[in-house]
Design a protein around this nucleic acid. Sequence first.
DNA 1: CTATGTGTTGAA
DNA 2: TCAACACATAGG
Length: 388
Amino acid sequence: MEGSSSIDQESTTSDSLSIARATSSSTLPATKTKSPESLCRMGSGTSVIIDAENGVEAESRKLPSSRYKGVVPQPNGRWGAQIYEKHQRVWLGTFNEENEAARAYDVAAQKFRGRDAVTNFKPLLENQESDDMEIAFLNSHSKAEIVDMLRKHTYIDELEQSKKLYGFTKDGMLKRKDGLISMSSFFGNNIDKVNNKAREQLFEKAVTPSDVGKLNRLVIPKQHAEKHFPLQNGNTSKGVLLNFEDLNGKVWRFRYSYWNSSQSYVLTKGWSRFVKEKNLKAGDIVSFQRSTSGDKQLYIDFKARNVPPTSTAVVTNQVQIPQVQMVRLFGVNICKVPATVSNVVVIDNHNNNNNNMTSCSGGKRRMEMELLTFESCRKKQRVIIDAL
DNA sequence: CTATGTGTTGAA
DNA sequence: TCAACACATAGG
């Protein structure tokens, strides 16, 4: 699906090639000029393809292993890219060409492990400008965003677009050429992204029971839909995919379309997942924002129905732990510890850790673990509220 | 139905 | 950390 053009580059950006050469994907066992690498890999595996000068190719329904790091074969002949971090695999997508997957890995490696990362191609050739641009680009996006771009095969495009739009200054800052906006510190993690990036509030909606029910869709009030998410005629029926980033840096992708039957605009595919993960309940408020800068990044967040009863002694019939009130205000978890330490307000900064893995479909475990404490805390709070 | 990418394992 | 492998399941 898709792909092609984009990542295929490795030539577009001036040099960069070097090692890349040779490649030409698949097959070339015979002429193994490259020597060392060819016979590597197959790790735990087994059989391997007994090279075989001639066509015999040793059968073995084993998939052909890749000579590239982070690249794994897919049953359909395509190639997957993955990188590991914190004992977890981060899937980088699937690609038609082995070297595309390898490039995707390289990009991720740069993002995840820094410039010294071992990569398939780029030894980070000092191509100055262009390379600096890419580094700046990587630094100005969260890991989740980069991963998402890789999976969608839009990394190259976005990088190129960024190069056009931004200038690069030696102090490691990305700066718009028009001088209007400047952000993203060099090694800036997404604190920048998450907290500092200028964004405008588009609208909010208190979700209805059906919005969080089994219909798996969110109705967007027509006025807001037409104002902020206009659909081109051709797309009304089929809809479009919109990416929204939450305050954890996680990117949520929803199908957005217009339903003639109900004459309403809706978010469909992907929405139920959001509801589930955020534990949205009827009455909760979802908020949509958009970056005011050039990228027009969309954001989504939510807040619980009504702010938990602050003053009124929260029912603690259950001898719970010290009653800690937790309010999640658009991504920032705020704990208010009643007595003891008087009014200490703790702001949860867990989302400043530059991580934010997990993209749409899976791998949520890790995120869940990280958020567990706070989420569970919040849920407990909600339970209490609902019990009232 | 197929392709994706997750669960899992053994090796390093 | 890593890739191999099996296969659940997302997605069309």
